[in-house]
């Protein structure tokens, strides 16, 4: 007998359990949607509860997907499938995905994008970034979310703006990389979402250019503004 235990690769264990959790949350979300359709909320109180349920479940789902994606990125099995896509498709998908949530929480969501605007990117990865940012806005905005896209020079810029209180000053200075800074974790979030967004943006390159993200306050709605740049 020796003291050495068989070593387990903890990240693999985590990844596979995250995978299980994500599937469960997916089921939960689907049942929730059924429930809301079959027994619509009778009063404002009920509607609020549904919203909370749905929002939190979506958030867990989103975070788990991010974790899995980051794991795959680290394990270098994350494929980036860049192809030509129409921007309106990926943005409309995200509006549709969060349609019910937005409806029940009485937020108005608008989309501004030229129907013919197209660019080169991985539609699934960029879709999940936009999804996470929109979910985040649902939490902080007062009444409006605006998603837009346009070409700025060599980059495609996707913007998600809201009329909430905006991003705290500390985040504006360094949007990502906060993950390593343990002190910041206490202020309500790990900013895993932004770290994720930055990583995905970075994976998109063209010539010497690399994708990035940018946070601002103000914008057309006067709240937080998230910008995703893809070369």
């Amino acid at each position: 007998m020796t003291d050495s235990k068989p070593s387990i690769d903890f990240s693999t264990v985590l990844a596979s359990s995250v995978h299980d959790m994500k599937n469960s949350v997916g089921m939960l979300l689907a049942s929730l949607e059924n429930l809301i359709q079959e027994t619509p909320p009778k009063n404002e109180e009920e509607a609020k509860r549904f919203t909370v349920l749905q929002y939190e479940a979506s958030r867990i789902n989103g975070e788990l997907i991010q974790l899995l994606t980051l794991y795959r990125m680290d394990d270098s099995v994350l494929p980036v499938r860049v192809d030509q896509h129409y921007i309106i498709d990926v943005l409309e998908d995200q509006v549709a995905r969060n349609h019910l949530l937005v409806e029940t929480s009485e937020i108005s969501m608008s989309l501004q994008c030229d129907e013919d605007l197209n660019w080169y990117y991985d539609i699934d990865l960029i879709g999940s970034v936009v999804h996470n940012v929109v979910l985040n806005c649902v939490r902080y905005t007062k009444s409006k979310i605006e998603i837009s896209a346009e070409v700025e020079g060599e980059y495609l810029c996707i913007t998600v703006a809201d009329d909430g209180p905006g991003y705290p000053a500390s985040m504006l200075q360094k949007p990502s990389g906060l993950l390593e800074d343990a002190a910041d974790v206490n202020d309500g979030g790990t900013h895993l979402g932004l770290y994720f967004a930055e990583k995905i943006a970075n994976l998109h390159t063209q010539h010497n250019l690399r994708g990035f993200i940018k946070l601002e306050n103000g914008g057309s709605l006067g709240g937080g503004v998230f910008k995703l740049y893809i070369p």
Binding site: A30, D93, V95, A96, H99
Partner: peptide, 11 residues
């Protein structure tokens, strides 16, 4: 999944 009516229609 989970899919919504709007998603299904769009796709």
């Amino acid at each position: 999944k989970p899919i919504t009516a709007m998603m299904l229609q769009q796709r």
